[in-house]
Every structure is written in structure tokens, then in C-alpha cells.
């Protein structure tokens, strides 16, 4: 396999998803495709030559030379405020990838699928769900997605559309900070009870993908193992700000 070389991508579209998250739709000439769950490295260069690099999960299903990233703006961040605030259609940026071969899913890997997300950790899981839909896969899938408020749910309209297709996908939200009037769903952090109610039984041998902040990932993966799920079928990825004092 050859070196992953840096490519110049052009921003085709900037799409707001929530108040803090935008989708960057990029045209990447020569892109060889990717697996849902993989990420890219993005490199920014200032006029004086200073560079900053970060990794971002791919949100889109493989689709020719089009690659979509969803970026959450972190107020004290260096790269995300630029990507999610400054970039506009027609701008260019350097990236290389795709990277990562473990936290990935393709329909032929089967299921049932248990996807657990916290905040922007939904991004690589969305790539899996988009791929599942694009492939017409009937692999049973359940997404359990924790957000602070309903307004913070990324891809909400699309998730509801995907779930409405009744092709074996269910979407369940847990709203941890505030809930709209009349909310009958979960109003707390994801816990073992919720995983038992929403997730599959260990005997159904789900493939679990868990992505979000460290605390959520550690807790959910620990609960799944304690509930009797095979640790080798629980894949985790950390996502979001790295500042963990």
C-alpha cells in the first residue's frame, strides 16, 4: 500500500447541522472511496507556514469523489472554529486518508447492529447508517444517541427519515440536559438499564459501535460487557475535545 498523500480538496458546500456543527461537503479529486467509520487527517497552513493537523470522521457514505465531514466547533479549539466558522464554498483545504480499519462497518459484516453515540460521536455512525441505507441493507440496526438537548441532535431530520423507512432501523434519543415539553423519551445519560431496554440481548450477538466522549464510551462499553456482551464485538472510538484533565 502506498503512502497516504496529502490531497487538495475543494469545499463544495457548507451545511449547518446544529448551532455548533456544520457539514463540510468536499470534492476530493482522485478519492478512492472509504469504509464507513474511517476518518481523514485535515491540515491547515497559515501564511507564515505554521500548520495544524487534526483528524475528523467521515460522515458520508462512499460516493465518488464527494467526502463529507461533520465538524463541531469547539470554542477553545484551534482548527474546528476555522473549519466550522471560516470555511465557505470554493475554499480549499488539505487532507489525507482514509485512515482507520477497525471502527468500520460494511453491510456484509452483518449485525444486528448496536450503535451508541454521544454528541458528535454520531458522525462515524451516521456514515454507517447512510451506507446501510444506500446499499438497501436490511441488517437490523438500533441507534441510541445521547445529546444535551433536542436542538443538539445532529442529522435529526435525516435520522427520522431513515427510521421512518421501516427497514429495520430504530433511533432512540437520550436528552441529558433539557427536554422539550411533552418529551416522553429518555431524559438522562445512557446507562445499563437503557442499554438493556434499547440494545440487543447478548445472545443475539450484536456488533456494537460506541463513539463519543471518553466518559460515555468507557461507561457504555463497560455496561455492555457487564450485561454479557462479547468484548470482541464491542468497538469503541473516542470523539470530541481531547482535553481530559
Amino acid at each position: 500500500m502506498g503512502r497516504l498523500s496529502w490531497r487538495l480538496a475543494t469545499v463544495a458546500e457548507v451545511r449547518p447541522e446544529t448551532g455548533r456543527v456544520v457539514t463540510l461537503a468536499l470534492e476530493v479529486p482522485g478519492w478512492d472511496g472509504h469504509l464507513p467509520g474511517q476518518h481523514v487527517d485535515v491540515r491547515l497552513t497559515a501564511e507564515d507556514g505554521y500548520q495544524a493537523e487534526r483528524a475528523y470522521s467521515i460522515a458520508s457514505s462512499p460516493d465518488g469523489s464527494r467526502v463529507e465531514l461533520a465538524v463541531e466547533r469547539l470554542e477553545d479549539g484551534e482548527v474546528s472554529p476555522y473549519l466550522a466558522g471560516e470555511l465557505r464554498a470554493g475554499d480549499q483545504l488539505e487532507l489525507r486518508g482514509p485512515v482507520g480499519g477497525y471502527f468500520v462497518w460494511e453491510p456484509d459484516r452483518g449485525g444486528p447492529l448496536l450503535l451508541v453515540a454521544g454528541g458528535s460521536g454520531v458522525v462515524p455512525l451516521m456514515a454507517m447508517l447512510r451506507r446501510r441505507a444506500a446499499a438497501g441493507s436490511q441488517v437490523p440496526a438500533r441507534l441510541l444517541y445521547s445529546s444535551r438537548t433536542l436542538e443538539d441532535v445532529i442529522f435529526r431530520e435525516e435520522l427520522e427519515r431513515l427510521a421512518a423507512a421501516e427497514d429495520g432501523l430504530t433511533v432512540t434519543y437520550a436528552l441529558t440536559r433539557a427536554q422539550p415539553a411533552g418529551w416522553t423519551g429518555y431524559a438522562r445519560r445512557i446507562d445499563a438499564v437503557m442499554l438493556e431496554e434499547v440494545g440487543w440481548r447478548p445472545g443475539e450477538r450484536p456488533l456494537a459501535y460506541v463513539c463519543g466522549p471518553t466518559r460515555l464510551v468507557e461507561a457504555v462499553a463497560g455496561h455492555l460487557v457487564a450485561l454479557g456482551h462479547d468484548p470482541s464485538r464491542v468497538r469503541t472510538e473516542r470523539f470530541g475535545p481531547t482535553g481530559v484533565p
Binding site: 469503541t236 482535553g243 481530559v244
Partner: peptide, 29 residues
Amino acid sequence: RRAADDQATRLPPGQYAERGFPVLTAGPT
């Protein structure tokens, strides 16, 4: 976030200084 001078020489290319200690793991602990 250009690194302070005393940090700049200690950072390998493409790295930034992190005060926390992030956790990256492929599966359950």
C-alpha cells in the same frame, strides 16, 4: 495555539501540546 518556545522544540512534527491525558481505545477496558 503556537507552542511556546520552550515547547516548540519538544513537539514532533504535526503534534500539539495537550494538558489532559486523552483516552483512545479500540474496545472495552
